[in-house]
Amino acid sequence: MKILYGVQGTGNGHITRARAMAKCFHEQGVSVDYMFSGREPSQYFDMDIFGPYCTFRGLSFVTEDGKVQVFKSARKLNLLSFIKDVRALNVDSYDLIINDFEPVSAWAGKLSGKQVINISHQAAFYDPLVPMLSVASLHRRFISLFAPSDLALGVHWLPFGGRILPPFVEVNCDNKQSHSFKLVYLPFENLDEIISLLTLFSDEDFIVYHPDMTEKKHIENCHINPLNRVNFIHDLQNCNGVICNAGFELSSEALTLGKKLLVKPLQGQFEQLSNAKVLVDMQRATIMHSLNEFTLDNWLTEQGVEKVNFPSDPAPLINWLLAGNYQEPEQLCEQLWLRV
Rank of each mutant, 00 (worst) to 15 (best):
residue 46 D to K: 09
residue 49 I to R: 08
residue 50 F to Y: 09
residue 51 G to E: 10
residue 52 P to V: 12
residue 54 C to P: 00
residue 56 F to E: 05
residue 58 G to Y: 07
residue 59 L to F: 09
residue 59 L to T: 10
residue 60 S to R: 15
residue 61 F to G: 06
residue 61 F to S: 14
residue 62 V to Y: 12
residue 64 E to I: 09
residue 65 D to S: 13
residue 66 G to R: 15
residue 67 K to F: 08
residue 67 K to L: 05
residue 67 K to Y: 07
residue 68 V to S: 11
residue 69 Q to C: 14
residue 72 K to S: 14
residue 72 K to M: 07
residue 75 R to L: 14
residue 76 K to F: 05
residue 76 K to I: 05
residue 80 L to A: 13
residue 80 L to N: 11
residue 81 S to N: 14
residue 81 S to T: 09
residue 83 I to Y: 06
residue 84 K to F: 05
residue 86 V to C: 01
residue 86 V to M: 01
residue 87 R to L: 00
residue 89 L to Y: 01
residue 89 L to S: 01
residue 90 N to E: 07
residue 91 V to A: 00
residue 92 D to L: 02
residue 92 D to P: 00
residue 94 Y to Q: 03
residue 94 Y to H: 05
residue 95 D to V: 07
residue 96 L to N: 01
residue 96 L to A: 01
residue 96 L to S: 00
residue 96 L to K: 02
residue 99 N to S: 09
residue 100 D to R: 03
residue 102 E to D: 03
residue 103 P to Y: 02
residue 103 P to W: 02
residue 104 V to S: 00
residue 105 S to T: 02
residue 106 A to T: 08
residue 107 W to K: 03
residue 107 W to R: 04
residue 108 A to W: 00
residue 110 K to P: 00
residue 110 K to I: 02
residue 114 K to P: 01
residue 114 K to F: 04
residue 117 I to D: 06
residue 118 N to Q: 08
residue 118 N to E: 04
residue 119 I to F: 01
residue 119 I to Q: 06
residue 120 S to K: 11
residue 121 H to T: 12
residue 122 Q to Y: 06
residue 122 Q to C: 03
residue 124 A to Q: 13
residue 125 F to S: 04
residue 127 D to E: 13
residue 128 P to F: 05
residue 129 L to M: 10
residue 131 P to C: 07
residue 132 M to Y: 07
residue 132 M to R: 10
residue 134 S to P: 03
residue 134 S to W: 07
residue 135 V to N: 15
residue 135 V to T: 14
residue 137 S to R: 15
residue 139 H to D: 13
residue 140 R to Q: 15
residue 141 R to W: 15
residue 141 R to G: 09
residue 143 I to M: 08
residue 143 I to Q: 09
residue 144 S to D: 13
residue 145 L to K: 10
residue 145 L to A: 08
residue 148 P to C: 11
residue 149 S to Y: 08
residue 149 S to F: 03
residue 150 D to R: 10
residue 150 D to L: 04
residue 151 L to I: 12
residue 151 L to M: 13
residue 151 L to V: 07
residue 153 L to N: 09
residue 154 G to S: 12
residue 156 H to L: 11
residue 156 H to E: 11
residue 157 W to S: 01
residue 157 W to F: 05
residue 157 W to M: 04
residue 159 P to Q: 11
residue 159 P to N: 08
residue 159 P to W: 04
residue 161 G to L: 11
residue 164 I to C: 07
residue 166 P to E: 14
residue 167 P to D: 05
residue 168 F to A: 11
residue 169 V to H: 06
residue 171 V to A: 12
residue 172 N to G: 05
residue 174 D to T: 14
residue 175 N to R: 15
residue 175 N to Q: 14
residue 176 K to S: 14
residue 176 K to D: 10
residue 177 Q to P: 01
residue 178 S to W: 13
